[in-house]
Design a protein around this nucleic acid. Structure first.
Lengths: 234, 234
DNA sequence: AACCTTGGTTTGATATACAAAACCAACTTC
DNA sequence: GAAGTTGGTTTTGTATATCAAACCAAGGTT
C-alpha cells in the first residue's frame, strides 16, 4: 500500500473500529492498545476524539462499543443500493419457501460484496455479513456470479494462473480450475434450470440486475444449494 | 467541546463522511475542500487514505461515495440491538394493518436514537434514518418515551427551564410545557389505550423493553398518530 | 496559438501530533 | 502498612503531518 500521502490517524482508527466491531463491549483502552500495537497515550487521544464524534461509546465498565454516527453512515452506505429493499421484501417470503438463508451480493471486480441477508435457522452459520467482502473465487456465490462475466473481462481480472488469496484448504488455487467450475456452473444452469445463483421467486427480470451507473452485477442466492455449504470462504 | 487530547484528522474525516453520506456520488475533492474549509492538499491525503481503507470509493467521474468498510461497521453497530430483528418481523406486518411507517427508537438520556424503520408510502416524508439522533423533547416519539421516565431522572435530564436546542418553530422551549405534554401523553394512554407510543400488535410484553445492560428504553411507534405529522423534529 | 481557469498532485518549511516518560488513583499482594 | 501492579491521564521534546505554495494536465476562452 502506497503511503506517500497517508494519514496515520485514520489507519489507527480503522483498526480500532474493526476490533470494536468484532468484539463490542469487550475491549478497554489498554486492551486495544496492546492488541493493536498503538501507544496508550495515542489510544487515549484517539478514543477521546472518536467518543466525542459518536463513533464509539464508552460503557460504564470502560469497554467500548460502536456509536450511532457509524450506524448513520453505515445506513447511508446501504441506501445507495435500491435493490436491497426489493430484496428484503422478496427474500423475507422466499426464505420460508426454500427454508434457506438468502443473501444479496454484488460483484466488484474479483471480489464479492455482501449487501443484505435474510436468515433462516440453519446448522450452517454463515460468516458473511452485510458490508463484508470476499474474493469471488473463494466463495460459491462469487463463482456463481463470475460464471456470467464476459471472457475478456474475466481474463483481465485473473491475469495470472495462481489465484490469490487462498483462504481455506478448499479454496481454488489455479485459474484453470476456476474456469472449469464456471463452465460447470453455466452448464448446470442451462440443463437443470437451477444453479447456485438462480433467483427462486420466479421474477426472472430481476435475476441479474444492473445497479447504479457502475453497472456492477447484483445477485441473491440461497446459502446452501448444489451441495456446497455456506456462502463464506470455501 | 474539549479539544485537549484531540485528533484533528478524525474530525476532518468525520465531516467528509457526513457530507458524502448526505450527497453520495455528487462531491469531488475540490467540492469537499471548499464546503468543509479543509485545505485541498489535506483533503487529498484524507481521501487517498479513506479510499485505501475502503471508507469511501472514488467514482469514475471523480466524485466520492461511501465504501463497504463503513457498511460493515454500520452493520456491526445495528447488530448490537437484538430487538431490531424482532421489530422488523413484527412491523413489516403491522405497517400494512395501520398503513403507517413504523420506527424503532431508543431513548439515550435526552435524545432519541432511531434504530430501524419499516416504511409505507406516505405524503409525510420522515427525515429520521437509522443511526440518527434527535433531542427527545423535539420529536413526538421522543416525548412519548419521556412520558415514562421516572420524575427524578427527568429532572436531572432537564435541569434548566429553557430547552435546547430549538429545531423548528414548533419545538418546545419551556420545561413546564414539556412536563404538561408528558402528563397529557400518560393520560391519553390511560384513558384511551392509545398514545403515540403504544405498540399495536398486541404483544404488550414488548411495549417498553429494556435492551442490553445499559437499561435504555426501546420503543417503536407509527409515524403519524394523534394528529402530529412526522417523527422528525417538531 | 496564447492565455486563463480548474481540479488535482507534489514539495518542503514549520507548526503540531505522537509517544516515551512521568504521574495518578485504585486495587492487589505480601 | 508498604510495596507492587494495573489502567488511565498528563507532560513535553522531537519526529512528522499539515498546508501554503508551486506545479501539472486538461479544458475553456479570446
Amino acid at each position: 500500500m502506497d503511503k506517500k500521502y497517508w494519514v496515520p490517524a485514520l489507519e489507527k482508527s480503522n483498526l480500532v473500529l474493526q476490533a470494536i466491531s468484532e468484539q463490542p463491549s469487550s475491549l478497554k483502552l489498554i486492551d486495544l492498545s496492546k492488541r493493536l500495537g498503538i501507544n496508550k497515550s495515542s489510544m487515549f487521544s484517539l478514543l477521546a476524539t472518536m467518543e466525542a464524534l459518536d463513533w464509539v461509546v464508552r460503557e460504564e465498565d470502560a469497554t467500548y462499543s460502536l456509536g450511532s454516527k457509524l450506524g448513520y453512515i453505515g445506513n447511508a452506505f446501504f441506501k445507495q443500493f435500491s435493490l436491497i429493499d426489493r430484496f428484503r421484501k422478496e427474500a423475507s417470503v422466499t426464505k420460508h419457501v426454500i427454508k434457506e438463508t438468502i443473501q444479496l451480493a454484488k460483484l466488484e471486480r474479483n471480489e464479492v460484496l455482501y449487501l443484505a441477508k435474510e436468515e433462516m435457522p440453519s446448522p450452517v452459520r454463515l460468516s458473511s455479513e452485510p458490508g463484508i467482502k470476499y474474493p469471488a473465487h473463494a466463495t460459491a456465490l462469487g463463482k456463481a456470479m463470475l460464471a456470467w462475466v464476459a471472457e475478456p473481462e474475466l481474463g483481465a481480472l485473473y491475469a495470472s494462473e495462481t489465484l490469490d488469496p487462498c483462504l481455506t484448504p478448499h479454496t481454488l488455487q489455479q485459474r484453470s480450475d476456476l474456469i472449469r467450475q464456471l463452465e460447470d456452473e453455466r452448464l448446470r444452469v442451462r440443463l437443470a434450470g437451477s444453479g447456485h445463483g438462480l433467483l427462486l421467486c420466479g421474477c426472472s427480470g430481476s435475476f441479474r440486475q444492473r445497479e447504479g451507473r457502475r453497472g456492477d452485477q447484483l445477485l441473491h442466492v440461497p446459502a446452501r444449494m448444489g451441495g456446497e455449504a455456506g456462502a463464506g470462504p470455501a
